[in-house]
Design a protein around this nucleic acid. Structure first.
Lengths: 185, 185
DNA sequence: CTGTGTTGTGCAACTAGTTGCATAAAGGGG
DNA sequence: CCCCTTTATGCAACTAGTTGCACAACACAG
């Protein structure tokens, strides 16, 4: 149940409308918790209903009308509670690794191209993170809040570094595999 | 939609009953695709219904009676199709990173202990993987199938290495943070 | 002043995964 | 022999996330 808390965090950082939130989930927040606008609107409705947030727009809300939300004390308290709560690490679940294991049984035909696509996408993500790091976290910027945010960014960078490294290695292995593929039929 | 394919892979590696599958999902398969026994039984039912797998037990299936399943050609074909199919990398979704970002706003009280728990659990997982690597992949074992399986294991090892490293670093940062915690109130 | 695209909001149905519980057989101890 | 735990199977309800679509307002082109 992380989406409401992601939204509360985003709104505390800066009160926003649904669309603004959606945009922010496409960038910074979405780097570790993605969400579509439909999810966001639905969740905003729930959060407003239970008194965690409040719409700033005074008029009755016409449909295509921007609504800005801000977090109420109850919402902040709930976020603090959730943040401090201990949560078990969820076991890994990665379809790509599963596919590789399947490939060991039914043959590797077709995966290689996809590994390349993944490598490409992780490389681009890594470059983006590094650009953000250069821009937003110059050496002197180390107030507590900066440190925490930098820590999170560093996790992203290290993860993408791991994936690009591993995928590169995997592709190299594929190069050394016997030409085809239907290794198990 | 990976669970049915995970099951097909497991059954191709070795025909099994529901409970045996459950056990294998607790070990090797579950390292990158976890599932509970309820999910597995439900999925076995579906796979049997659509002709991907078949129960080996001849008698009518009494309730507490072991049923072994094997994969039919249709199931193998479907798995091969899925394996070769190109799939987009899913964006990262990690509650722990989200919590850290939330902590930058509502205060870090309580997270540190949880970071330690996570570190601990990742360290144990890493040790387990390394033991498996030592046991199952001695230097000479490099037939194509072995290479692929080793590759997957290596991903697990590298991921756990990343997490232990990052968590250690994070805890070090926490040590240098001002004593409390309600940095944003 | 009309249609066509863009911005912003939202509902509904579906899919996947989780949680909680039920049932049946088998084996072993009192 | 009866109860109790273990093994094995399974259903049902719930929660979270995704997909597909709809609708209102505005802007601006013809």
């Amino acid at each position: 149940m992380s989406l409401p808390h992601a939204i509360l965090t985003a709104l505390l950082e800066k009160p926003s409308s649904g669309l603004e939130l959606t945009r922010r989930f496409d960038k910074s927040i979405g780097y570790f918790w993605s969400a579509t606008h439909q999810q966001i609107y639905r969740e905003l409705g729930k959060l407003e209903a239970d008194g965690s947030i409040r719409a700033l727009t005074p008029q009755q809300p016409a449909r295509g009308q921007k609504k800005r939300y801000e977090v109420l004390p109850a919402g902040r308290a709930e976020l603090a509670r959730w943040t401090a709560e201990s949560q078990d690490p969820k076991p890994l679940r990665d379809p790509l690794l599963l596919r590789l294991r399947a490939a060991a049984v039914v043959g590797t035909a077709g995966i290689e191209a996809d590994l390349r696509r993944h490598l490409d996408s992780h490389q681009r993500q890594l470059a983006e993170y590094e650009e953000i790091q250069g821009r937003d976290f110059p050496p002197g910027k180390d107030a507590p809040t900066d440190r925490l945010q930098h820590l999170v960014l560093r996790a992203g960078i290290d993860l993408e570094t791991f994936w690009t490294g591993w995928l590169t290695h995997a592709l190299a292995e594929f190069g050394r595999l016997p030409a085809d593929d239907d290794s198990a039929s």
